[in-house]
């Protein structure tokens, strides 16, 4: 693997740099209360409502599915965007670059750390739902794909934003759309028709088993399409930044 250097020439990625950034990011996220709260609040709400609320006719694991999708649409996206914009604003990113850390090494280290924390969140949802075996694997696979897309979107926003407030002003509407659309789709057919084409909408339908009558290719196609769009956006932002 090769990464781009600040002077534009290519050079090999260094594992030591990636590990250093990974460790830094893990510590920093654990101490960033505002970000950490997002990773904790959704599993906590799912836990309380899953075991505390019972509504006749409600589908099984309704709250786990709902909050898991909200979690993947919100927490990784906000965390990645906040992280990048903060590093730019406080000039820590510049110090890392001047110490020889390439952009690719940084993104792998910081993104890898956020992916790990997000996956821990996903595992906790699986535990709250009491999933096991294939159900758990399917759940985690869908969550991983969604978290990855959210990280790409958050990264694109963070890379293009000049500072944290600029990043927040873009992040909030984007995460609202992706995290709340699946819930709103339950109340409105037009919203449901649109939500079908978003990764969060599809993951929610997949988790709830609400794909009756749909092509079996719909789920992977939408996820792939969303991932491709997010990756292109990220690549553009990366070059732009």
């Amino acid at each position: 693997m090769r990464g781009k250097r600040m002077d534009g020439r290519e050079r090999i990625l260094t594992g030591r740099h990636i590990r250093a950034v990974y460790g830094k990011q893990s510590l920093d996220t654990l101490r960033n209360k505002a970000i950490l709260l997002q990773f904790l609040i959704f599993p906590l709400m799912a836990l309380i409502l899953e075991y505390g609320v019972e509504i006749p006719g409600m589908e099984e694991h309704y709250f786990v599915h709902l909050f898991a999708v909200m979690f993947l649409g919100m927490a990784p996206l906000t965390a990645m965007s906040a992280l990048l914009s903060e590093e730019k604003e406080t000039h820590t990113l510049r110090m890392l670059h001047l110490a020889g850390v390439t952009s690719a090494e940084y993104l792998l280290g910081a993104g890898g750390s956020l992916l790990t924390i997000s996956l821990l969140g996903a595992v906790s949802f699986g535990a709250i739902g009491g999933f096991g075996g294939m159900t758990l694997l399917r759940f985690l696979a869908a969550m991983t794909a969604g978290i990855f897309i959210s990280l790409l979107l958050g990264g694109a926003i963070g890379l293009t934003a000049k500072n944290q407030s600029a990043a927040t002003s873009v992040t909030v509407p984007v995460m609202m759309i992706f995290s709340f659309l699946p819930m709103l789709a339950m109340f409105n057919d037009a919203v449901a028709a649109a939500a079908k084409f978003t990764y969060t909408g599809q993951i929610h339908r997949f988790l709830c088993g609400a794909q009756a009558g749909e092509s079996p290719w719909m789920f992977p196609a939408v996820l792939l399409g969303n991932a491709l769009a997010a990756a292109l956006l990220f690549a553009w932002a990366y070059r732009h930044a």
Binding site: T90, H91, R94
Partner: peptide, 8 residues
């Protein structure tokens, strides 16, 4: 701008 990680 010192570029220090404030939470660390």
């Amino acid at each position: 701008e010192l570029g220090l990680y404030e939470r660390l």
